[in-house]
Design a binder for these strands. Structure first.
Lengths: 193, 193
DNA sequence: GTCATGTTTGACATTTGTGTCAATCATGCA
DNA sequence: TGCATGATTGACACAAATGTCAAACATGAC
């Protein structure tokens, strides 16, 4: 096969992800991506078609990693520990970067990009998968008994609440406040002793 | 006083609010506002200075009304009723309009506009005020006794969760799902009997 | 080494938005 | 009525983004 791609696709996606994460999908332009990756605009158009296609690929990377990190974080002896682990990971995710990059899912859902069907579907798939991961982690006899609501409902509430945390992070920028909010929610979801 | 404004400021703000609400602050341009209001771009620049100034005024309108509606909705004999009323109002707010307009606060916080100090402060003021409204409604002996956590913490969790609902609305667009989520959270915040 | 293949490059045309300004206009006050 | 005041208007200059394309280029296959 002749006529071979001159740039490292994996490296470009890595950079594209960080740009999208930092600026948001809607606020990122092709020139932004070209400059950040060092790949000419024309080459990006040729290779991927448009910004949406690049975003979808980069978002796949993001989703995959987030899910893996979520799975790893949902560990503990008690329901409270499991929830604490999850929220810590989620909060670390959205408070990373300089300046703080926030939550890519939340930004994308709220900046108008969700009007694009494929983007919206990618978000939906990701959030549903995340909900499943949380539900599976909670769906064990020991933990179940400690929860005030059934795992499926608890998982939905937890994932939704995490999006709320992402919004508060944008407004208050206060990491400790986020952790405290998470503690309060966790306490509410655990059957009072 | 000669040289008098030719357009109805209140009417313009009303329209500006609906445009910002529908499209989001960042995605709205001065030409958008000019077209929607029927006021020339030059006149808007002359009267207000820039988009941010118009947004801040329109957002004041929004905040005022949302707080009033929240106060009215936080009524009921039991904590569960009070929470249900609040969530119903919040969900009605974000599922109104065609197409659904979503939550102005959440959109603004997540679309990059929060990078503007004044915008961010307006958001913060509003969310803090809303938290206070919820806290005050819950801070009554009868209700307090029914809650699993103290009113101040419950209020923060409730306001944060509502932002999460707004994100889920963008992705799933499912009103009933939002109501169910709210029910589950309410149930968790109420001390199990 | 040659060649077909697909990539890269820079330029072009188009669209959209910003911010400013001089000329024109409408109006309340004297 | 006349005028000072400030609003309105349309045009201008500028900046930034999109999408496309012909020409130049690099490379793997033969």
């Amino acid at each position: 096969m002749a006529g071979v791609r001159q740039f490292d696709e994996a490296a470009v996606m890595e950079i594209a992800l960080s740009v999208f994460w930092q600026q948001g999908m809607a606020a990122t332009s092709m020139p932004d991506l070209a400059q950040a990756t060092g790949v000419q605009r024309g080459s990006l158009y040729n290779a991927y078609g448009d910004k949406e296609a690049i975003f979808l690929r980069a978002f796949d990377l993001y989703a995959e990693r987030f899910l893996a990190s979520a799975r790893a974080s949902l560990a503990g002896e008690t329901a409270e520990d499991v929830l604490r682990g999850f929220f810590r990971a989620a909060i670390a995710n959205m408070t990373g970067g300089t300046p703080r990059r926030g939550c890519l899912t939340t930004k994308t859902a709220s900046d108008g990009s969700a009007a694009l069907p494929r983007v919206r579907e990618a978000l939906k798939r990701f959030l549903d998968a995340l909900t499943d991961v949380v539900e599976e982690a909670l769906d064990q006899p020991v933990l179940r008994a400690q929860l005030a609501v059934e795992p499926a409902r608890a998982a939905k509430v937890i994932v939704t609440f995490t999006r709320g945390l992402a919004v508060m992070e944008r407004v208050h920028g206060d990491r400790d406040g986020l952790l405290e909010l998470a503690e309060t929610l966790s306490a509410s979801l655990v059957r009072s002793r």
